[in-house]
Design a protein around this nucleic acid. Structure first.
Lengths: 146, 146
DNA sequence: CGTTGTTAGTTACAAAACCAACTGTTAACA
DNA sequence: TGTTAACAGTTGGTTTTGTAACTAACAACG
């Protein structure tokens, strides 16, 4: 009972997912951290704006599932560093449109390149079929844990 | 360039892994948090001791890849709640053996049951072959990001 | 209009994580 | 032995996150 239980942590999916996520995030983190002093929340906001263009904090929240306070702080940091600008909506003055500056777009394109190369390096360790299976399953798991 | 870029965040493996990990951890977190007021670090330490039996903080660190300060604080909390006991090694007095108390083992067995049921529920959404592929790939990714 | 409810976003405070320096102990080896 | 290095584990101070309450603006409906 107290020694050598047969439950295996390495087979417990949430644990395994966390380990894989942590390890695989590390190298990319080093780049956006060392190169731009960004946090995870910040590169995510940067990427959302880089990919989809101008949008509000609310929309970023819906797409990324990040909490609005995290987004608010990430936006403040990115604005302070002149990576994005904020524009109030004329009709509904609660809304604020966020848009990358030239500097923000340069940072985005730079990091996007790193991300793509890193993703390819990770994918190279597996067959195309396995990668497709993996991504499909991860998307299912991410969309809602049964 | 600024609008509708073609990079897809949902295909960037580190991002996708994080999303899946976060969502799939949530339900289990609710149980150990609501039922025992534990943190993630604490259930991990509890499980390591429940599964492998008596060991030192150092060994837990090696197996779990958690930083020693996290482990130290989790152990302190678990000891305070009488879920584990600490015994100095007679020969090398730097070492401290950690072992679950009866209460600790009860908590472990309770949570292990929850974990197993949750894992089964997650697995039920996929074929056995796909689950095997998923776990194999996650283990590869967790062991070292190329 | 005016009250009540809802929404977008921010701020304040507490909880947790991170990093570096620390204590106490053993090992290495001149 | 004596000195220096290495190791197990802890503590302190800062950063980051989480939670809840807040402000400012709009909407619904009497």
């Amino acid at each position: 009972m107290s020694i050598a239980d047969d439950f295996d942590l390495q087979n417990f999916l949430p644990y395994l997912l966390n380990q894989a996520a942590e390890v695989s995030s590390l190298r990319f983190q080093q780049v956006y951290k060392d190169r731009y002093g960004m946090l995870r929340t910040e590169w995510r906001v940067l990427f959302h704006l880089g990919i989809y263009g101008k949008m509000t904090a609310k929309e970023i929240g819906k797409r990324s599932k990040m909490h609005k306070t995290k987004i608010s702080r990430a936006v403040a940091k990115l604005a302070e560093r002149r990576f994005l600008t904020r524009h109030r909506d004329g009709a509904d003055r609660r809304l604020e449109y966020l848009e990358l500056t030239e500097a923000g777009q340069r940072a985005y394109r730079d990091l996007r390149q790193v991300a793509m190369e890193y993703d390819s390096a990770l994918a190279a360790r597996f067959s195309d079929a396995d990668m497709a299976t993996l991504k499909r399953m991860l998307r299912t798991l991410a969309s809602d844990a049964a």
